[in-house]
Nucleic acid binder design. Structure first.
Ligand code: FES
Ligand code: FES
Lengths: 141, 141
DNA sequence: TGATACTTGACTATTTTAGTCAGGTTTATA
DNA sequence: TATAAACCTGACTAAAATAGTCAAGTATCA
């Protein structure tokens, strides 16, 4: 099980953004330089974040991105959702009554993976962007 | 983040095995048929499980595999370890002091991924094969 | 009228995954 | 003792996913 770089970069970029947010829009170019993420790739990511109304864009010179909600209200789960970083543990379709093996009952491990799914998603629902920024500020002192 | 089929099948097969274990060795062919997993693939998986001493093999006709420890003592983490299903959340090398971006400090999100890593691995360390078999037996009633 | 920065969509190399395939060796049992 | 069941090993590969790049814009400020 591994985290994809889309999810990783999305969070990294948003933490960076959130730290400067109160003043001016932050340009992707700056984030790219500070965090070492390809600019083109960041653009893909922010396009999605904007569609999900996590950030707002400001065009033109001195433009950039701004948070569209309070950092406290942006959960990790929202971010991952936006960039399509899903947790996939069960193999079957959850709604269906069929198992992953094509049989009419769920497989021996279905329930386990389902628990795992919840376990991981809980984590994502509890962490907010604010938590991350604070955690980082403390570390700095 | 998704579970690979190697990890999924390893657990599935072991639960199947554990249910019949007390009597005779269980052949991979049987597991293959019951669980709908390719025999050749199962062989790869069991080769690893044997090397880690999770199962024991019995060669020849009527042969098969037997658990090498009590089901209670086989944790999910042991199984995943054996088949190389790792949880990879941080991008950097944990031991190193360098960050994932090549800088001399850890990145803004390092700590978060590290927490996530522990969160997931906790789950794997708490579940034993016995739990899974029991859980399944209850469900059947 | 630049320069800066967002916007969009297509494209691609690399890596990982999920197996298959071919050729063994061992041992119970008929 | 022949035969078939079952383990054992390593190499190979098609397909999918990932992690980007590239190209061609549009909007806005100074
Ligand atoms: S994962 Fe749902 S039935 Fe196997
Ligand atoms: S993940 Fe460890 S420094 Fe970025």
């Amino acid at each position: 099980m591994k985290l994809t770089s889309k999810g990783r970069y999305a969070v990294m970029a948003l933490v960076d953004l959130a730290r400067f947010d109160n003043i001016n829009p932050v340009s992707l170019r700056d984030i790219s330089l500070r965090q070492g993420i390809s600019l083109d790739y960041l653009e893909q990511i922010f396009s999605r974040l904007r569609k999900r109304e996590i950030v707002q864009s400001v065009r033109g010179t001195q433009g950039g991105y701004v948070l569209n909600k309070k950092a406290k209200e942006i959960k990790l789960s929202n971010i991952f959702d936006a960039v399509d970083e899903k947790v996939k543990t069960v193999k079957c379709k959850k709604e269906s009554k069929k198992g992953c093996n094509g049989k009419t009952t769920k497989c021996l491990t279905h329930n386990l993976w389902d628990e795992l799914d919840s376990h991981i998603n809980n984590f994502f629902e509890q962490k907010s962007l604010e938590d991350l920024v604070k955690d980082n500020a403390e570390r700095r002192i």
